[in-house]
Amino acid sequence: MEPSSNTPNKILIRCLSVKDFFDGNAETLKFKSVTDNEPLSRKQITSKYISRPSLALSGYFEIFSQGRILIIGNTEATYILKITESDLVPRLNQLATYDIPCIIITHQNRLPEIFYQIMNEAQIPVFESDLPTDLVFYHLTSYLWEFFSDRTVLHGCLVEVYGIGMLLQGKPGIGKSETALELINLGYRLIADDIVVVKKTINGKLCGEPQEILQNFLEIRGIGIINLKEIFGIKAILSRKEIDIIVLLTAASEKEHFERLGITETKETILNIQIPVVKVPIRPGKNMASIIETIALNLISKKSGYDAPNTLNEKILSYIKNQTGHAPSSPINRGQL
């Protein structure tokens, strides 16, 4: 394997403002802002974890995690409505002293006016969601984990072929974008060209996206920059895709070693996740698109449990075994293989 271009290039600090958080989830979670202060853009969410205040409402603050979004579900809402205001107010006041980016009330619960007043004064935005707590938890966990996930930026071209996410890599000018263009012409889709933002998903996969500014643009040497969406329409574009395999396009040379059997699997580690790598030689006039298509189909076939090189090898081994001790003859003469 030649030295890789995939040097980790981590963007370490990610900041999520409450405003962006609100806007990004308003539709899915049917958010309504209920306090006077509009979702504050200066307030930041720094944790991917969510908390429920539960025991804090009964005055127990010894273990209380700062900086987390608070969710008030049915349990908390019922409790707040049940206790007297003289009990409730000091606890809410104490709660409001903590660093809380925002509070979400689920299940269409409505709390006493005093709750909104206190949070309003403390400048803690309160949102309501019509959805049940479990759903809100589920959505927010995946949203926040993804937002705060490990990420890196890779050089290459991410395409989707037969449902397989393929990251085309190789030296500049080798023909990554041109290969992508051939694939688009065949009806496949491009996710990102040149710069691929890669992040680890909650289920331990790698997911690639375009860098926002560059989305839909492709550079073809000799033509310049083109907009795929303008030329090919929506069918040519995909906004994100899991990366299943890396295809390393390499200038064909006598000295370079290319896999001939397909038994040895090369892998590359990106964000601690291993991705198979296939290195293919490039020559002018070679139809790269059909090779890339075949790599995708072969990966699907492998995933479904079929292993061509080993199947052939088994055949040969059994042939050799049967042959040992017999008069020499080649498989062709015996009409086998």
């Binding site: 059997l261 081994l317 050799i320």
Partner: peptide, 16 residues
């Protein structure tokens, strides 16, 4: 085992 996949691969690689 005779010339099965891996020896074959070594022969071809060397030949190349």
């Amino acid at each position: 085992l005779g010339i099965h996949a891996r020896p074959a691969s070594q022969i071809v690689q060397k030949a190349m």
